[in-house]
Computed example of a mutant assay.
Amino acid sequence: MVNLIWAFMAVIGILYAMANGTMDQVNEAVFEGAAEAVTLSIGLISVLVFWLGLMKVAEEAGILKVLTRLMRPLVSKLFPEIPPDHPAMGYILSNMAANIFGLGNAATPMGIKAMEQMKQLSGNETASRSMITFLALNTSSLTIIPTTVIAIRMQYDSVSPTEIVGTTILATLVSSVSAVLVDRFYYYKSIRGN
């Protein structure tokens, strides 16, 4: 549906430009935007490779295991029906660690694996409580260090590209707590309704 909306907006814009005789400006904007997108993508690839490498070093050094051990009690409370030693728990913790460092692209494969493991654990096609909680948390944005946004700000010569860290932490705190509260509210409401 979103693709149709974007396509409709593009067609309307082109038709409007044709009617006003400003197609040359539209063409210029399209080519400038495409060139800038390529430059931005290459810059983001380098940042992503750097942070993925750093995550690999942290994994090899055992830092991720320590982080996982520290987060496990909290995550076990959020996902009580998943056994602590189940593979889904490892994928959930890895996904959260990657998201905390602003590596959404690196977190996505781990999130998909976590969902697959939770689906196997539940044994049916209906989303389990854990799957819904995990989705709510991922949607709320568990970012403390927004590396991708910092990289974009650096690429556009921001005077202080890291000044957003404080507001990101505040926004993450509010959105994550809200996601858990709403998740639990609807969970307990559904239990009482049955």
Rank of each mutant, 00 (worst) to 15 (best):
S160A: 13
T147D: 03
T143D: 02
E125Y: 02
E59N: 14
L78E: 04
L70H: 09
M89E: 06
D85Y: 12
M110H: 07
S122Y: 03
E163W: 09
L67W: 09
N99T: 02
P109I: 01
G123S: 02
L54I: 15
M118K: 04
V75G: 11
M131H: 02
K56H: 14
K65D: 14
A171W: 11
T167Y: 14
I92H: 10
L93N: 00
F134L: 12
M89Y: 08
R72S: 13
M55P: 04
L103H: 02
S94H: 10
A171Q: 15
K113T: 02
S140C: 08
D85I: 06
G90A: 08
H86S: 10
T168M: 08
I112A: 01
T172G: 15
A107L: 02
I152H: 03
L135I: 12
I82G: 08
K56I: 12
I63Y: 09
P109N: 05
P73S: 06
R72Y: 08
S122E: 08
S160D: 14
L103F: 03
G111L: 01
K119I: 00
S141A: 15
T108N: 00
T133Q: 04
T139L: 09
L137H: 04
M71E: 13
G102V: 01
E116M: 06
S160R: 09
T139N: 12
F101D: 07
T68W: 11
I132N: 10
I164W: 11
E60F: 12
L74Y: 10
R72I: 07
